[in-house]
Simulated assay, not measured.
Amino acid sequence: MPSYAGPAPARPADVAGTLRLLAYLALGIALIVLDHRGGWLVQIRDKAEWVTEPLRWLAGLPGRIGNTVHDDAATRTRLAEDNRVLRNALLISGARLARLQSAANENARLRGMLGAAERGELDVQLAPILNIDLDPTRQRLVLGAGSGSGVRLGQVAIDAGGVLGQIIDVKPLTSTVLLLTDPDHAIPAALARNGVRLVVYGRGGRLELANIPMSSDVKVGDSVVTSGLGGRFPAGFPVGTIAALRPDDSRAFLVGDLEPAAQLDRGREVLLLRVNESRGLGPGAGGSKGATPTESASQASTSQSPAPSPQAPTR
C-alpha cells in the first residue's frame, strides 16, 4: 500500500496565473465602480466610435454602390416598360379620338344638311358618295343611289351650304352628279341683295361670273343665289359669295370670282331634291324636262341681255 505523500507543491506558473486573474478581476471591478460613478468609459467609447465611423462607412461603400446600381437598373427597366405600355396606350387613344372626332364632324355635317332641308321644308333624299372625279376638265360625283332608289335625271344635288350640281346620268344602282365647277356647267343666278341677274360658269375647280355690265350694282362680298330661271334649279338656293371683281379683256364688262357656298371637295353624302310639281321643284318645274345642263343658263343669259354701258371705257 503506497504511503501518502501530501499535497503536490504549487508550481510558480500556476501561482502567477492566479495572481493575474485576481488582478484583472480587481481592475474590472474598479473600472465598473469608476464608470458607474463618473461615466468616463461612455465618453471614451463615444470618441472611439467617432474615430472608427469613417472606417465603417468606407468598408460598407462597395455594398451600397452595388445596391444602388442594382436598384437603378431595375428602376430603369421598369420605367422603360411602363413608358412602352403608356406610349402604346397613347397611340391607341389617339386613334380612337381621331375616329370619334371624325364621326362627330360627320354627324354635325349631316345634322346641318338635314337641318337645312327641314328649315326649307324640302323633300329630299340622302345619297352616299361612291366616287369623285375632280379633274379640272371633269368635276363629277358618283352616288350610291340610282333609279331603283327614285333618283331621276335632272335632280338638283345640295348640301348644308348650297347647290352642288345636278344629276346627269342615272343607272339602276348609281347616278352621276355634274358639279357646278365643271367646265360644261352654267347656272342662272341672281344677287341676293338686289336681284341683279347673273350667270355662274364652272371653270374646272372654281366658279366665275361673266359678262357683268360695268353699271351693275355688284360688289365684292355679295351673296349669289339661284334665280329659278330655266326651271332646272329652284330659286333661292345659295350658290356662292363674290370674292373678287375685275374687268374682262374688252374692258366693257366685269368678271367675278365666286367662292362656292357648298363644300364641293368634302363630305360623304349629298341631298337630292325630290320632284315636287306643286311647289315648282325639280327638273320639270317651269321648263322642259329634257333641258341640257347649259340650256337654263342660256335662257337666263338671253333674258339678261347685257350690253356695254355708254360710260364704259373702250379699248
Score class of each variant (00 low, 15 high):
1 M>I: 06
2 P>N: 05
4 Y>C: 03
7 P>A: 00
8 A>I: 05
8 A>N: 09
9 P>S: 12
11 R>M: 08
20 R>N: 11
21 L>M: 06
24 Y>N: 09
27 L>K: 07
31 L>R: 08
33 V>C: 07
34 L>G: 04
34 L>Q: 10
35 D>L: 03
40 W>A: 07
42 V>L: 07
43 Q>W: 14
44 I>H: 14
45 R>G: 11
46 D>L: 11
51 V>L: 15
53 E>V: 04
53 E>A: 15
55 L>Y: 10
64 R>S: 08
65 I>C: 07
67 N>Q: 15
69 V>N: 04
72 D>G: 08
72 D>W: 14
73 A>H: 13
73 A>C: 03
76 R>F: 12
81 E>L: 10
85 V>I: 13
91 L>S: 08
92 I>C: 03
95 A>I: 11
97 L>E: 14
100 L>S: 13
104 A>K: 14
104 A>W: 15
104 A>Y: 15
108 A>Q: 10
109 R>Q: 10
110 L>T: 00
114 L>K: 06
116 A>T: 07
117 A>L: 02
118 E>C: 01
119 R>M: 08
122 L>Q: 11
127 A>S: 12
127 A>W: 05
132 I>E: 14
134 L>F: 10
139 Q>C: 05
146 G>Q: 02
146 G>M: 02
147 S>I: 05
148 G>P: 01
148 G>Y: 04
148 G>L: 11
149 S>R: 08
161 G>C: 01
165 G>K: 04
166 Q>P: 08
169 D>Q: 12
172 P>A: 13
172 P>Q: 07
181 T>F: 06
183 P>C: 05
184 D>F: 04
185 H>F: 13
188 P>K: 03
190 A>M: 12
191 L>F: 01
195 G>R: 01
199 V>T: 15
199 V>R: 01
201 Y>R: 14
206 R>C: 05
208 E>M: 09
224 V>T: 12
225 V>T: 14
227 S>H: 01
228 G>V: 03
233 F>K: 00
235 A>S: 10
237 F>Y: 13
242 I>N: 02
242 I>R: 02
247 P>S: 05
252 A>D: 00
254 L>R: 04
257 D>K: 03
260 P>D: 06
261 A>L: 00
263 Q>V: 05
264 L>R: 09
268 R>W: 11
269 E>L: 09
270 V>H: 07
275 V>S: 11
276 N>I: 12
278 S>D: 15
279 R>Y: 00
281 L>S: 09
281 L>A: 08
282 G>H: 02
288 S>H: 08
294 T>G: 08
299 Q>E: 14
300 A>H: 00
301 S>F: 11
303 S>E: 15
305 S>Q: 09
305 S>F: 06
305 S>K: 00
308 P>L: 02
309 S>H: 01
310 P>Y: 01
314 T>G: 00
